[in-house]
Design a binder for these strands. Structure first.
Lengths: 377, 377
DNA sequence: GTACAATGAGCAAACGTTTACTCATGTTGA
DNA sequence: TCAACATGAGTAAACGTTTGCTCATTGTAC
């Protein structure tokens, strides 16, 4: 005959303790146990504490699957990404994951790989799992899903990707970030600021160009020459530098704002190779704060950090709000980054290193100090 | 009065169609519908087809949560990683995800961030979700979890991380990969092959050193000088090159096997800067096939690809076997990579680019062709 | 002393599947 | 002709929670 009215638990060792065990141990019903642990319902503090104590003693942890089946929430979200390389997605994913984990929400990682069929299959799988929300993450702010997303009945947030008009999206504020970078150069006395960037058809490029122009205009300066477009590569920075600093030119730039850190790297290498001192003769600011590049340049690179980790966290927090049913204004939000100061714009950055003693083509002086800046004003 | 004996489905639009709907539509019981769709049990082909048709028509997709509750499987695995940067984890994760996705298994991404508490919390969360298995991924083959993992009652696989004696783990075969890289140099006629690598206390370093020695011994060659250890950085490659190629030396190497692509990058830059032609005077092979570096060197870098994506796939397939109850021999498996040929060892690689016309310190000839190789045999 | 509200707790249904059993209906073999 | 059996399909329990409802008890106001 059984000791209790509840059935014996004869489960094998690997089977976890359920709320029934807690209830039996405490001598209350499953209902009461559930309510005690979820801090809902009315009951004697004494009962609540007894249930809690039993749960702790038994090492009870609620089964998320069962909870997900009965409740409306699965406490999981899906992250669909086409960025297999992970350069942009991973910080976003890490931020998302950490901000969700604190609230008991887990993240499914789905590698879409730019293949529409695969993405569809992943989204189906996420629906089958009844995820509470979906994050679509990309590597380009002007590229989104390869197809229109139907109404899934769950919140969707686009992260670092383009999103439909009425959706909710978060991207780095490229224009503002560029503005910041250029203003940083202006504040350090630069007035002939060139811009070397990536492919022209990237929205990121055109926004950064606009930020460059805007910051210059704000300082009553004109753009130094035309924008040098390239393919985001180190080589294109190298080539652009040789052109910008060609001996035959009437005028040299005193600073270059680069569209990414690789370009900056190539540009600094080229400048150095022809005797132009960075930052003495030429200040350089990069974009991305990709440390593997930014710290490897001589001197280390002052650059823009897009704060993708924080972007991921914001996406996570917003998703939690949406899941909680709070209203969130639709639309695209552009999040500011920050300047990471190192040495390539002069001054002392965070990564102080012994100065190299390269001879400057311009006599080692800081050209910026010697030359009158003409303004457009 | 209801049209059917089954209750009306008055669910809102965002509520998905259940197996009851399929059963009702077909006029069979839920049991039969379930069996028809799962291809089990006995029934008329006609019945089975009718159920299938109804399911397709209604767009029925089984609810993974319900399925997970009743079955022993949740069709999900957890991926715990401490590699926030993602350089090593992301290919592994992508491979894992893709090989699992084909079998209907999703992957939870947990960013552990080297914080034991966080990792524990993540593992708890995964247990609460009743995952079918756990993958512990790392960025160093000689570092694992910050604590001993208790018996979870589910399969655990370590990927690119150290694992306890009786566990199952997969790592790149550093020794073999190094061996391949050096043999590649030997096959191209090099005989004074130096090795510049990262930190001495990394197991990856010592294994690669061993592979270097082994391949040399196999070719009856002696190591060229001592191993140059560094911190995996570009700068350390640069410095090492200046030392190895110093004018005062009695003998110069005719090849360098580098512990990663950044080192190779620095080394090639240094060599080029002092007039040593790569690959004319010096062949260089890297490690990692990190394209952003391997393709940016002049000439593009021949290097070792550790095939981490494939490693992830193998981990996935093994995990599926384990979940299916198949026996897998415990222990650490070392997986081979492959050489990616570019231009830094001579010959034509995949990434042909116009040759630069740098003048060689050694007269532009290929030193390797001119010099007798002394052997240890 | 009665009516009524507040309190503490339990019953049972529900979530959407899967699956061990049961059962009616042919079908076969002696 | 009847037992034994194969077949096709259904019943109901189970998975581990949550939650709407009910109910006994106690306290309170009239």
């Amino acid at each position: 005959m059984p000791d209790d009215d509840l059935p014996e638990n004869t489960a094998p060792a690997n089977c976890r303790v359920t709320i029934r065990d807690v209830a039996r141990q405490t001598g209350v019903s499953v209902t009461t146990a559930s309510r005690a642990l979820n801090e809902i319902g009315r009951m004697t503090p004494e009962t609540r504490n007894r249930v809690r104590a039993a749960a702790a003693e038994l090492g009870y942890r609620p089964n998320s699957i069962a909870r997900g089946l009965v409740g409306k929430r699965s406490f999981a979200v899906g992250l669909i990404t086409n960025d297999t390389y992970g350069r942009f997605t991973l910080p976003v994913a890490a931020g998302l994951s950490s901000s969700m984990a604190d609230r008991g929400v887990s993240v499914f990682l789905c590698a879409g790989e730019d293949d529409a069929e695969r993405v569809k299959a992943n989204i189906d799988a996420m629906q089958d799992r009844r995820v509470d929300g979906l994050v679509i993450a990309g590597k380009r702010i002007d590229r989104g899903l390869p197809f229109e997303l139907p109404d899934l009945g769950i919140p969707v947030i686009y992260a670092n990707a383009s999103c439909p008009p009425d959706a909710i999206g978060f991207v780095p504020d490229d224009q503002l970030n560029a503005h910041m970078a250029v203003s940083h150069l202006v504040a350090r006395g630069c007035c002939r600021i060139a811009h070397v960037t990536g492919k022209k058809d990237f929205e990121a490029s055109s926004l950064r160009v606009r930020g460059w122009e805007e910051a210059l205009a704000e300082a009553n300066l004109s753009p130094f020459g035309d924008v040098c477009y390239g393919n985001w590569s180190e080589e294109c920075g190298y080539t652009a530098a040789l052109e910008l600093l060609a001996p035959g030119r009437a005028e040299w730039p005193d600073a270059v704002f680069c569209g990414n850190d690789q370009i900056a790297r190539g540009l600094i290498d080229a400048a150095t190779s022809i005797g132009v001192d960075v930052p003495g003769d030429l200040a350089v600011v990069g974009f991305d704060n990709w440390e593997i590049f930014a710290k490897a340049t001589r001197p280390p690179l002052t650059t823009v950090d897009m704060e993708l980790l924080e972007l991921g966290r914001v996406v996570g927090r917003t998703m939690l709000d949406l899941i909680d049913g709070k209203d969130v204004e639709p639309g695209l939000r552009r999040l500011p980054g920050r300047i990471v100061e190192r040495r390539s714009c002069g001054g002392g950055g965070a990564d102080l290193e012994p100065r190299t003693n390269e001879t400057s083509r311009h006599g080692g002086g800081n050209q910026r100090e010697d030359t009158k800046c003409h303004t457009t004003g």
